[in-house]
Write a protein that binds this DNA or RNA. Structure first.
Lengths: 244, 244
DNA sequence: GCACAATTGTAATCCTGCTTATATTTCTTC
DNA sequence: GAAGAAATATAAGCAGGATTACAATTGTGC
């Protein structure tokens, strides 16, 4: 219970609530620990809860009729998912799966809706969040249309590095991602990703490992973009400030 | 002023407000009439107003560094755009342009935020709207990755028919779209769209015209999907109920 | 520790759809 | 009504990336 409270307090979306509300939430939410690859919900299931990631990463995916997968997002601890349950979504439009051994907090839709009603400001914060994710999708749609695999790969590597990368003393960043996950993130085949990674590896920009890769020279990776594309990714320059 | 009130009252997002609020909105909003191809705002401009479409269609686009365009959405009368201004968006991430001679209503962000504060329920409705558009983007991302041009084209034609099509007595639906617009909607080249349309034309599924096309056999178009893809577009069966 | 599953590495082949090119039709404007 | 702009039509050549295939490596469960 204390632990639950701690986690909730440390989620950006909830941290501003007064102690009383936080305790109520901690009391009424369920905490679940689970192994890697556990699925929290599948597409088409009833949308009746909101999740808060406490530990591990969670991937949100859509699967085509033929079983091919696209990754909509990969969440880090402190982020919530399934929040579209409070936007009139009846059934899930994606699946949610743990990428690592994970811990999540489950809040019923009813409870969350009550919270929104008690704190109108919360609705604005959720609105902000949903809007932000929508804009991210718009950017990805654009990249998918305009950028070749190599660029999409670099953009995604840098993006993932900011969210999930572990920074080393020497400035390199390690990422816990399989080539398959990367492929599903950028909408390419696993082989195309492997080939492109091999090329970057040869250029000394990164190292590959089993289920992981290490960005040795993030700035160098970024430079592979600017040759063909205009300078237009100022946010990515923040890469240096990656959380360690 | 009366006309302004009428339009606002007839927008789904506002219709539930009490008369008093509607009048206030009508009073404080600006009504603008403009020609086809007028741009309401460009990407990177300050996000300080929300728009309501009264007449004509409005397209929202993103443009790549090289000048290529992707259409994020095409709005019909009664719909709003620019609403991300109230989600913490500082600068526009897309441009908005009139596809027809149009009329829009402009509400300042401040005014809209006040409205949200006075009516917390409004925040929930906007949240619902933004969530819906996010899900649409997720679907398009998936289609872009999994579907070939032919399928994307059909899906888009049927989708556009529902939103903007004019239904004829004989069951055919006419759409005011250029091939270029279609190409930008599905992320393909204009030529690829033309070629595919030619094929459908030959199969008697549609007719093409200058800046317009007529879906002669929407169900037949849909059937071209089910051969290669599984049946998985139940919503599209509503096509028969297209607004006339 | 051994069998099996998952992941990575690499290469040849093939195909969708982009590019480029050119002609024609329809609208707009003066 | 003529000239120019915008949109449609069509086709050849090319290329990025998917598919297919197979080998090698690393993890996992009994």
């Amino acid at each position: 219970m204390q632990r639950r409270l701690w986690y909730i307090k440390n989620a950006a979306l909830f941290s501003w609530l007064q102690e009383e509300e936080l305790q109520r939430l901690a009391m009424r939410s369920e905490m679940v620990e689970c192994k890697r690859n556990t699925t929290f919900y599948f597409a088409q299931e009833q949308s009746d809860s909101i999740f808060l990631v406490k530990q591990g990463r969670v991937k949100l995916t859509r699967t085509s009729a033929e079983g091919r997968e696209v990754i909509l997002d990969i969440l880090a601890p402190g982020e919530i998912f399934g929040e579209l349950a409070v936007t009139g979504e009846e059934l899930r439009t994606h699946s949610a799966t743990a990428l690592d051994d994970a811990m999540v907090c489950i809040i019923t839709r009813r409870e969350f809706e009550d919270l929104l009603r008690r704190h109108p400001e919360m609705a604005l914060r959720v609105l902000k969040l949903v809007g932000l994710r929508r804009r991210e999708l718009e950017m990805r749609l654009e990249d998918l249309i305009f950028q070749p695999v190599a660029n999409r790969l670099v953009l995604t590597l840098l993006w993932q590095a900011r969210r999930h990368g572990k920074k080393d003393e020497d400035g390199s960043v390690s990422l816990p991602l399989t080539q398959k996950d990367l492929a599903h993130l950028i909408g390419a085949s696993r082989e195309a990703v492997a080939e492109q990674l091999a090329e970057f590896k040869q250029q000394g920009l990164l190292r590959t490992g089993y289920r992981s890769l290490v960005l040795i020279d993030p700035k160098g990776l970024m430079r592979t973009l600017t040759t063909e594309t205009e300078m237009e990714f100022p946010e990515l320059l923040d890469l240096v400030k990656i959380s360690g």
